[in-house]
C-alpha cells in the first residue's frame, strides 16, 4: 500500500520572514513545539530555518535579538509534493541528512511540513495496519 505524505504533514504551517530576528523565530518554534519554520520569501521558493541553524548561530556567537533569519536560513528549502509516497520522502530525508521537508500543493505553494517524527509514526502505523490485514500463511 502507498501512503501519500500530503496526509501526514502538519497543516499548521508556522512561517517567518527573512527579516525577523532569530529570537522571534525561536519563540515561534517554541510556542508551537516544532523544530523548524518556513521562511516565506517574496517571489521566490520558500526557505527554512531549523533548530540546527539556531544552534549554529549560537555556536558562532550571534546575538539572537539582532541577527536576522536571513543570515542562517537555508534559502531554498528541500520540498516534496503532497503526492509523494512515504518511503520516497524517507529516502530523501536520510540521503540528504535533513529532518524536515516542506510539502507543496498542486500550485507549488507550501501546504505543510513533514518532520522525521511524523514520518516514523506513519511508517510504524502503516506496518502495523498492514500486518493486521495480511492473511496468515
Amino acid at each position: 500500500m502507498t501512503l501519500e505524505i500530503g496526509s501526514l504533514a502538519s497543516e499548521h504551517l508556522v512561517t517567518v520572514g527573512p527579516q525577523h530576528t532569530l529570537a522571534e523565530a525561536a519563540q515561534r518554534m517554541n510556542q508551537n513545539k516544532i523544530g523548524s519554520v518556513v521562511v516565506l520569501v517574496e517571489a521566490a521558493m520558500p526557505g527554512i530555518l531549523t533548530e540546527r541553524d539556531l544552534l549554529r548561530s549560537i555556536a558562532e556567537g550571534a546575538d539572537a535579538e539582532s541577527t536576522t533569519v536571513e543570515r542562517y536560513m537555508t534559502p531554498i528549502a528541500i520540498t516534496g509534493s503532497a503526492s509523494w509516497d512515504v518511503y520516497e520522502a524517507a529516502n530523501r530525508m536520510f540521503e540528504g541528512g535533513f529532518r524536515h521537508l516542506i510539502v507543496l500543493d498542486d500550485q507549488g505553494s507550501p501546504s505543510g511540513i513533514l518532520s522525521l517524527r511524523d514520518l516514523v509514526k506513519a511508517l510504524l502505523e502503516t506496518s502495523s495496519s498492514d500486518r493486521l490485514s495480511e492473511p496468515r500463511t
Binding site: A23, N30, L54, L55
Partner: peptide
C-alpha cells in the same frame, strides 16, 4: 539537546 538551546534562545537567555 538542540531543542533545549532553542528554548533558551526563545526565553531570551544569553548563551555565554
Amino acid at each position: 539537546t538542540e531543542r533545549d538551546v532553542l528554548r533558551a534562545v526563545a526565553r531570551g537567555l544569553v548563551p555565554w
